[in-house]
């Protein structure tokens, strides 16, 4: 009887060990979901807010329409002064446009931050193509530094005809733990 009990105890221990390995692997799986999610988003073309867009295939300027692009700027819990140099620009679809933003770091030490764009109306988002943008990289500003940065974009002629105004809004978020952030 006691021999049988020892064999069973060994069997139980092996089982517990195997299940613990499964539990540990699943903890790792939770972390593996991070790059997996990234790859899925890239494959499906969603969530690529801070990467350069391809220029529209049709480069014909549609002079028959004009679209107003309103520019907006916010800093989220960040001691930065952040503003566009012009409030709005009027462009023809297909026409290359360039605007400038100004940021100034009001804090007494360097700060790193990342701008994240958003669009209104949301269905205009795929049609406002950013060729060049300060939001493609993190920005580090020294204490008191002021910087002017360009955004170059094209409004795709595929834009639905009933959209006359697009709002392009940027929000700067501090990248915690980098560049002297708290």
């Amino acid at each position: 009887m006691s021999g049988g009990r020892d064999a069973r105890r060994d069997g139980n221990r092996r089982m517990a060990l195997r299940l613990s390995v499964v539990a540990l692997a699943m903890f790792g799986f939770g972390y593996a979901l991070v790059p997996f999610y990234d790859a899925i988003c890239r494959a499906l073309g969603v969530n690529d807010l801070v990467k350069a867009d391809a220029r529209p295939a049709n480069t014909q300027v549609d002079a028959s329409r004009t679209v107003t692009v309103e520019l907006d700027a916010n800093a989220h819990h960040l001691p930065w002064r952040f503003r566009p140099l012009v409030r709005r620009v009027t462009v023809h679809p297909g026409e290359l446009a360039a605007v400038e933003y100004e940021i100034a770091n009001m804090r007494g030490r360097p700060v790193t931050a990342q701008a994240v764009p958003s669009y209104g109306p949301a269905r205009a988002a795929p049609h406002l193509r950013k060729i060049e943008c300060f939001c493609f990289t993190q920005q580090t500003l020294a204490a008191g530094e002021t910087r002017r940065m360009p955004v170059v974009f094209v409004v795709d002629p595929q834009l639905p005809r009933d959209v006359h105004t697009i709002t392009l809004s940027y929000t700067f978020f501090e990248v915690a733990g980098r560049g002297g952030a708290s």
């Binding site: 799986f29 939770g30 994240v116 733990g177």
Partner: peptide, 30 residues
């Protein structure tokens, strides 16, 4: 056994985002 560790991972990521400078869920850090 399969999913409790995944929750543990999710809250651990929240913890490191809060205190250790990671940015799993922080748009600014990617």
């Amino acid at each position: 056994v399969a999913v409790m560790p995944v929750l543990a991972g999710a809250v651990t990521m929240t913890l490191t985002d809060r205190h250790f400078g990671t940015s799993f869920f922080n748009a600014a850090g990617g």
